[in-house]
Design a protein around this nucleic acid. Structure first.
Lengths: 144, 144
DNA sequence: TGTAATTTTGCAACAACGTTGCAAATAAAT
DNA sequence: ATTTATTTGCAACGTTGTTGCAAAATTACA
């Protein structure tokens, strides 16, 4: 994963590539994403990171990252919204969200199973498919 | 689908089977579910149905139906929570949510594709699978 | 490097959503 | 028909998400 300095450098490049100003908030939020192995939700950012961010800034930052294709949302069955960093192939205009998400019922973490393919689904006649979201619920490796 | 009277009768049986009192609110909410072909969210109930229900009652009713296995939740990527009636095989203790949900990007409706099977997914070693949720985004038959 | 232009942030105020306790109303049991 | 148990609606509250605007930080450029 690299040293903290390397991560910071990587984040700077990522932001500049997306034509975004490099600000403390954005760097800190991206650091959290990179250091966390699971998906994060809004409330995670207000608490964590030593410094507590303003709620509004967090909302706006996540919204910006979404629009630039830096992060993506993960479906949930409650009112929370979960985000994870996109793989490198994701860009502002082209998303590769076709991977499986795993939600552990024990630790509550949601992770992206990048290696696991989303299988082909045969829809009834007349339906056009754009995107498939798969969330598997169960028990993860660490909790077993 | 049957006449209104038949539906009301069916709902009475369903409620009594679940050991729930047959009240006006519960009947009206179940009627809405049966008459709608798509999934419904909380706000749909406050407005619709001529009579407007109290917010709290709707929350509590949906919660009760969930616990009894009468309805199930559908994953979304926003803060809304969508519900749909369960198929007959669902009970309080055993759920068959293994079907595909389809969200139309044009009309916004979410429907259950009961006939469409959820394909097998090969998880990495060490993961235990309990339940798979699939949501397909695209354009539905009616909007094409 | 210093200054102007642009972008981002934080605050305040607000709107929407969801929860809890309790008394009144309704349904079930006898 | 009366008692018992359940459900409902209200009030009050906490949380979550949004918008406008002035202050602060970042970028662009001389």
């Amino acid at each position: 994963m690299g040293t903290t300095k390397q991560i910071t450098e990587k984040i700077g490049i990522l932001l500049r590539d997306s034509k975004l100003s490099v600000t403390e908030t954005r760097v800190k939020i991206l650091e959290l994403f990179m250091k966390s192995d699971g998906a994060l939700e809004h409330s995670d950012f207000e608490k964590l990171a030593g410094k507590s961010f303003d709620r509004v800034t967090v909302y706006r930052t996540l919204q910006t990252f979404l629009e630039k294709g830096i992060i993506h949302k993960i479906p949930t069955t409650d009112t929370s919204v979960r985000y994870a960093v996109c793989k490198s192939e994701c860009t502002e205009h082209h998303h590769h969200d076709h991977h499986v998400h795993f939600k552990c019922e024990t630790c509550g973490n949601t992770t992206c199973l990048d290696e696991t393919d989303v299988p082909n689904i045969q829809l009834p006649k007349g339906y056009a498919m754009h995107n498939v979201e798969v969330v598997v619920n169960g028990v993860c490796k660490s909790c077993k």
